[in-house]
Structures are given as structure tokens and as C-alpha cells.
Design a protein around this nucleic acid. Structure first.
Lengths: 194, 194
DNA sequence: GTTTACATGTAATCCGTTACATGATTGA
DNA sequence: TCAATCATGTAACGGATTACATGTAAAC
């Protein structure tokens, strides 16, 4: 029974509390009203997750007692949590993460803001690109092998998968370019615009 | 405690056993070696699912005893299962299904082969298109509201989501066209190529 | 003869869903 | 005053993951 590493939901919560301290309800609202809706958002998921994170010392709970009768528990990313989150953000994208649409790859990118250096972000995107290209090859190989004998629906479904990953790949490339440009403005590697 | 409707994994199994009778290991192999890898594939998921489906009468289990010592249990879609699967395949795509990347929308399309009429498939794709367009509007609205004040990573992450759904939308349109063409060849609605 | 693939399962654990419960505050 | 929203939880249940257990058949 290993130390039990956080779930994707828990990492998402770590990332949010790391932006600014939040209550359970604040997190609920984020999952309700932003495109992070992927994670939903029931109290039965969020409050237990917060308790687990607090027990493991990844977030600090503070009781907000400003005149209110009901205690408002506000959670903030702890030093230890910062370490765990940082380590996760630096993980290379794996084939398995692509296949199970866990949303982890894009979540890591979104939460990397101000936590990773531009170089680390670019390294991460590079791993993302590699994973996509390698998996795309697999899928295209499968499409070739399948060819005409399989049913029309199966071929079309596979085509959807391929298109989706291709679009993701395009995005990775353009995002890397954007990051490089943004970084260039403040960290002119080599001899750029100065 | 309602009749408890099948999970996506269970519907996937229903679809597979509906193509041809399969053992637990056959299903395992499909999930291992095809792009259906989305569902994984551990015996701890598959065998209990098969047992549940058999208990609910959605699949029939047959003991294959051809000279082998070990019994090989082969499952086939039952009449009742055919009904449940068909009803599921006809369900319109919902916003929630798009958000949680459950893979259900594309799974339904893939399994619809020979189970739905071309008209029903087109109706399904139409619901898929509507769900995508409506959710895309939501996301684009969010992007406009967010604009410049949010961080670069958040904006880029949202952009990835939008691109992904756009690519899915393109696919839906092209798939509908393909289905229409294929149907036209054997069911010339109106007055096409006679 | 030994490893690899075939083949079927069980047990512990844990997370998420659904539903329920409670109460304060705000606005109609 | 009554509804809606803010706000924090608990409990039952169930499915999935992980790991373990076991044994056969085929290939090398």
C-alpha cells in the first residue's frame, strides 16, 4: 500500500488552491462555471478530496471566522503540496494519458503558469508532441491494416480519433511557438530582439 | 435504487458481444489491441461487468466445452440486451457527454453499424452536431469574456478545447455526408441515381 | 523443460456519484 | 415570508484499479 498518489481531481484542486486560497464551495463554483467543468463538482467529490489533501499535508486549512456563525474552511497550497504539484507538472505526457481522456495533459499545461520556467514548459510540450506523434502513427498503422474489410462506422470512428489527435498536435506546436515568443521577450536566449 | 442502467463499459461490451459472441478474454484482447483501448481491460473490470450483464439478462452465457478441461464462458447479446443497446444508440448526444470525455458519443456511432437505419444514424449525428455547436458557442463566449486579463496558459488551454470540438464538428459533418452517400446507393430517397 | 500467451477469476481498496441533510443569507 | 443561493457536509452504493491466484496450451 504505497503513499497513494493524488488523483487528477486532487491535482486540479491543488492547482486551484495554489492560485489563491479557496473554500470547497469556491472550487465547486470553478468547476461549475468554467471550462474546467470536466471535473464535476459534486460536494461528495470535492469535500472528501480536500480532507484527504489536508491529511497528507498538501494543503493547509484555515478557519475563516469573520463574524460568521458557520465556519468557512479555506484551503491553501502548502509547501509540500507545491512540491507534489510541481513534480506532477513536470511529468512527461504518456501514451496512456492520451488514450484515457483524463484531461491530465492539458490540465498540467494550464496549471503550469508561473510554476514552471518557459524552458520546462517547452520540454513538457515536447513530450506532449512526441506522445501524440507516436500514438498517431499507431492509429494510422491500424487504419491501414483495417482498410476496406471493416465496417464503414468503424473506419469513420477511427478517423475521428485520428483527426482529434492531429488537431491536438497542431495545437501543441502553436502553443510551443507562443510560449517561445512570450519567453523571448523577457529571456532572450542567444541573441534575439534586444 | 433504480434498475441501474449500464455503464459505458457495459454498453461497449454489449456492442462487442452483439457483433459476435465473445469470452471475457476476447473482450480483453479487443480493448488491448484496438483503438477501443479507451476502456481498459483489466480482468477486474471485465469479468464483473459480464456477470452483471448476465444477471440482468442482457447477455446469454454459454459454456463452451469442446474437449477443453477449463470451461470457456462465451457471452452473446440477448434479445433484451439488443433492446437496451438499441435504445442507448438512439439517445441524442448531450452537453454532459461532450464535457466528460467518456467517449460515449463516438462509441455509440461506432456500434450503430447494422443496428440503426441510415435515417436513425443521421438523426443521431444531427444531435451530435447540435450538441457540439451549442457547446462551442459557450466556450467561445467564455473565451471572449476571458480575453486578455487571464493568463496565457489558460487562454491557450481553452483554445485547445475549442479546436478539439471544432475538429469533432468537422468530422460529424463529413461523416453525415458519407452516411448519406452510402445510404443513397441502396435507398435512393427522392430521385437520385437510379 | 521452461517461458510465454491463453484464460478465468477473486479480494481489497478507494474514488466518485447520487441523494440526503442542514442552516445562513439575500432578494423578491 | 418564501424562494433561491450560499455553504458545508455525510451516507450508501457501486464500479474501477490494483494485485493476487490459478491453471492450460503452445512454442522454443
Amino acid at each position: 500500500v504505497r503513499p497513494q498518489q493524488p488523483t487528477t481531481l486532487e491535482y486540479a484542486i491543488l492547482g486551484l488552491t495554489g492560485m489563491s486560497p479557496m473554500s470547497g464551495y469556491d472550487i465547486h463554483r470553478v468547476f461549475e462555471t468554467t471550462p474546467l467543468a470536466h471535473f464535476s463538482s459534486s460536494p461528495g467529490a470535492i469535500y472528501p478530496a480536500l480532507r484527504r489533501l489536508a491529511q497528507r499535508g498538501l494543503v493547509d486549512a484555515k478557519l475563516d471566522t469573520r463574524t460568521e456563525a458557520r465556519p468557512r474552511r479555506v484551503f491553501a497550497l502548502s509547501q509540500k503540496g507545491k512540491g507534489a504539484l510541481g513534480a506532477w507538472l513536470r511529468r512527461a505526457v504518456t501514451r496512456e494519458e492520451l488514450i484515457r481522456g483524463s484531461g491530465a495533459p492539458i490540465l498540467r499545461f494550464a496549471l503550469a503558469e508561473d510554476r514552471l520556467t518557459p524552458e520546462e514548459v517547452l520540454a513538457y510540450l515536447e513530450s506532449y508532441r512526441r506522445a501524440l506523434e507516436s500514438y498517431l502513427e499507431e492509429l494510422e498503422e491500424h487504419a491501414r491494416a483495417m482498410a476496406a474489410n471493416a465496417g464503414l462506422h468503424l473506419r469513420l470512428a477511427l478517423d475521428q480519433g485520428i483527426r482529434g489527435y492531429q488537431s491536438e498536435l497542431e495545437w501543441v506546436k502553436s502553443a510551443a511557438a507562443r510560449i517561445r515568443r512570450a519567453a523571448g521577450r523577457r529571456v532572450p536566449r542567444g541573441r534575439a530582439g534586444a
